[in-house]
Amino acid sequence: MKTPTASSVHCLLRRPVATRPGNLQCTIAASITTASTTSSSSLTTTSSTTHCPSYTPTRQQTARAFSVLNRPPPNYPGHVPLTRIERATLALGSGVLSLANPYRGDLIAVCGEATATPYFIHRLHRAMLASATGRRILRDRPRIKSGSLDLPRLRALPRTTVGGTYAAWLDREGVSPDTRSAVRYIDDEECAYVMQRYRESHDFLHALTGLPVVREGEVALKAFEFANTLLPMTGFALLAVATLKPSERARFWDVYGPWALRNGLRSDEVINVYWEEEMETDVQGLRRRLGIEQPPDLRDIRKREREERWKQKQGMAGAAVAGS
């Protein structure tokens, strides 16, 4: 007489919340155990694994060894799988060139992607999964573009709101939210979106802190992002401190560096801010909620320094004329 057959079916969803069709990844593991009534009561176990019809390659599969002549198919539109040597070369080359020219956003983006794996982007992904708001962002996958943000509406909001502050900052700095390049070199499709979200949220942090798009302001914000996200590219960007003017370098070590470290470590994970839902929020209230204190106005400090230098030059010129 045979004993009854026992089976267990486990389905692992990629997200802990509802997922849209096409983004669901499911793995079904079925184990069938059969016991026979022999004197030794031997036990035989058979395991099998199948995949849901909507399954797409995962990062574990694409992480297998391959060569440039045997490259696996992309995991999402625009994806370029890289070998370890290619990834290391890309990280080193883009990192060196972006230090030489910190205004090359494309090189900074490539360096960020090449150095984010295998650990750091997954840490950021887990931080989003641990937050209810982060999970909603992963489910909805909003994009920060001028069309989706409705900039004319944001410009009409009070300057005390997040949306009004953001629009005013874009206009003052002459920046557009449509300049962020698409992620290409991160294998996991959902982690690629996490990197895209971080990249497109960067200007909101500029607006929230008031830091301008100048080398000194970018270095200060990258220091904050490094303390908050741990992405290696933001840490490498701190090497640009050496390229600052002596007065700017001293100001970073005395003012903006300590501010960035203190606020980046103590504040909430900024990747979990659903910016699109905060447009009418009081900007001071959002800073308090996140635990971010606004640093001294760098643009105002730089303006006063320029005016002081101009006055000194005028004084020296007047003294030269009087002496002649």
Rank of each mutant, 00 (worst) to 15 (best):
K2S: 14
K2W: 10
T3I: 09
P4Y: 06
H10T: 14
H10K: 10
C11K: 08
L12V: 15
L13A: 14
R14H: 09
R14C: 06
R15D: 02
T19H: 00
P21K: 07
L24Y: 03
Q25T: 11
Q25M: 11
I28V: 15
S31N: 11
T33C: 10
A35S: 13
T37G: 11
S39H: 10
S39Q: 12
S40H: 13
S40K: 13
S42T: 14
S47Q: 14
S47F: 13
H51F: 14
Y55N: 08
Y55T: 08
T56Y: 04
R59H: 08
Q60G: 03
Q60W: 11
R64V: 09
A65D: 12
P72S: 14
P74Q: 01
N75S: 14
N75Y: 03
Y76T: 10
P77Q: 09
H79L: 04
V80S: 07
P81D: 04
A88D: 08
L90I: 06
A91E: 02
G93F: 05
V96M: 13
V96Q: 06
N101M: 06
N101S: 13
R104V: 02
G105S: 13
A109H: 15
A116G: 10
T117H: 07
Y119V: 15
R123Q: 10
L124Y: 02
H125A: 12
A130Y: 02
I137Q: 08
I137E: 07
R139F: 04
I144Y: 05
K145V: 09
K145C: 09
S148L: 12
L151H: 01
L151A: 06
P152F: 11
L154A: 03
A156Q: 09
T165H: 04
T165L: 12
L170A: 00
L170S: 00
E173D: 12
P177L: 07
A182D: 15
V183F: 02
V183L: 02
R184T: 01
D188A: 09
Y193W: 13
Y198A: 05
R199Y: 10
S201E: 07
S201N: 07
D203M: 05
F204D: 00
F204R: 01
L205D: 01
L208K: 04
G210T: 11
R215D: 10
E216C: 05
E218Q: 02
V219C: 12
F224C: 00
F226P: 00
F226N: 00
L231V: 06
L231W: 04
G235T: 01
F236V: 12
F236Y: 09
V241G: 00
L244E: 03
R251L: 13
W253A: 14
P258L: 03
P258K: 02
R262E: 15
L265R: 14
L265E: 12
L265C: 08
R266M: 03
V270Y: 02
V283L: 07
R289F: 02
P295Y: 06
P295T: 04
P296N: 09
D297R: 11
R299T: 13
R299I: 01
D300M: 11
I301G: 01
K303N: 11
K303H: 14
R304P: 00
E308G: 08
W310I: 10
Q314Y: 05
G318W: 09
A319N: 09
A320W: 08
A322H: 05
G323C: 13
S324Q: 10
